[in-house]
């Protein structure tokens, strides 16, 4: 792994902690009014207007097959970009930005709760927590639809 330090934007989804390289995060916004898109894939909550751009919002919980929690006011949308297209990832609660050493990253353990291992590019573990680092490209890629895989 890289020997540089990594800044992770950490957030909570269901009862699990996840992290995203801050370099990939464009911004974090409160949940605006979302326009539902009927007949869209299941994990797509809808689309929003982000300063004139249409942004597709993905429900990470559904994508990662995690139980969806009861609504809290802490929900946020993390805006990321992939191939010049902005995406919003709906998460339950935003946590701190943590600095970690690249060496501390390990491969995702086999028993990681997420059935879709490919969405996780690695895990970071210290005494009290385990943070799974998301692979954004996999998450926004079209190749799969969760239902196809079953």
């Amino acid at each position: 792994m890289a020997d540089t330090t990594l800044q992770l934007c950490s957030f909570q989804l269901a009862d699990a902690l996840f992290g995203l390289d801050t370099m990939l995060v464009q911004e974090i916004i409160k949940v605006p009014e979302i326009t539902k898109v009927y007949q869209a894939p299941e994990e797509i909550i809808g689309i929003i207007n982000l300063r004139g751009k249409i942004v597709t919002i993905i429900d990470l919980a559904i994508k990662l097959d995690l139980p969806t929690e009861i609504e809290t006011n802490n929900r946020r949308i993390i805006i990321v970009e992939s191939h010049n297209e902005p995406f919003g990832l709906m998460v339950d609660t935003i946590h701190d930005v943590i600095h970690i050493d690249g060496d501390e990253l390990g491969p995702a353990p086999a028993n990681v709760r997420i059935s879709q291992g490919r969405f996780i590019s690695g895990v970071f573990r210290d005494e009290e927590q385990l943070i799974a680092i998301l692979n954004i490209e996999e998450i926004v890629s079209l190749a799969e639809s969760k239902t196809d895989q079953v």
């Binding site: 898109v37 894939p41 797509i44 689309i47 249409i54 597709t56 993905i58 191939h83 297209e85 079209l142």
Partner: peptide
Amino acid sequence: PMGRHLKHLASYAGA
């Protein structure tokens, strides 16, 4: 235009 996840939906011409 709609994002890549939604482009293929036949019912919509865009947003």
